[in-house]
Design a binder for these strands. Sequence first.
DNA 1: ATATAAAAAGACCTAAATATCTTTTAATAT
DNA 2: ATATTAAAAGATATTTAGGTCTTTTTATAT
Lengths: 148, 148
Amino acid sequence: MLSKSCVYALRAIVYVGHNSSENHKIGIKEIGEELDLPVHFLSKILQSLVKHNILQSTKGPHGGFYINEVSGKIKLLRIIEVVDGLSFFHKCGLGMHECSDTHPCPLHDDFIVFREGLYKIFATKTINDLVKKVEDGNAFIQNLNTKN
Amino acid sequence: MLSKSCVYALRAIVYVGHNSSENHKIGIKEIGEELDLPVHFLSKILQSLVKHNILQSTKGPHGGFYINEVSGKIKLLRIIEVVDGLSFFHKCGLGMHECSDTHPCPLHDDFIVFREGLYKIFATKTINDLVKKVEDGNAFIQNLNTKN
DNA sequence: ATATAAAAAGACCTAAATATCTTTTAATAT
DNA sequence: ATATTAAAAGATATTTAGGTCTTTTTATAT
Ligand code: FES
Ligand code: FES
């Protein structure tokens, strides 16, 4: 559904949101290790998020990634848009060229309920919402038994 | 979500169910052309379905693919199982190693609604259900403007 | 029996996603 | 200014999904 790049992005951002601040930035190595993600690959993904101003970073000693006021309020959908694009939310679930109410595939009615439901979730929730869940102990972003 | 192989499979089976019978089998070439699908690739997929007894075929003149009584009643989920496997329906939407109620990711509650809803649809609907929709004119499996 | 038609099987090929490794750039502390 | 640290950038490798082409097998009609 979402690509690996995309879920890596989401989890990494939440991790950064949870563990960092303007004066305690967090290195790519730590993020990768804590989330069991391939560091260099993740690095690419985060680079792109920084370019899109979804995430902040600085180089050099005590550098690393962090998240500012504004970024925390970004909707998950925006991250998906940047990493994967939004085509999933418009595509036919049976792979027809067009998804349309007037020329629907046999799964259309059932499928769009879920597709649009997901859309709404992603379009509504922010990074901060996820961070809060983690901080309240109601959710986790690290694997239970850490082994890849 | 579903791989191309999988949606190709579903659409092809519905096409066969709709257009063929024991004494009017239907060739791979026609299926591919009518659905705008790559013939040889589709051929592989259908081969595997035949092996799994989800679809029937005979070689030689007037040979081709068809669907018997039993196959029409097969659930969509079975096709997904054979082509893609069922891992999607158990996997964490944020890519954590395990999806669990006790160690949930921050999207877990929202995501499983979607995941399990879809599961139910696929576990319930049969090939014949989709064929019927098409025959009743309530759905289509061919593209509108046929160009790949 | 033979020719023919169609699927099955096998061998490849291509593109995209995922992952790794190396070099460069820039920020900071000394 | 210099050394150091960490991200950015670039190049390359691997894996998986998707697709094509060729040969073989098998059923049928003649
Ligand atoms: S036409 Fe297939 S999901 Fe809308
Ligand atoms: S833990 Fe992520 S979806 Fe269940």
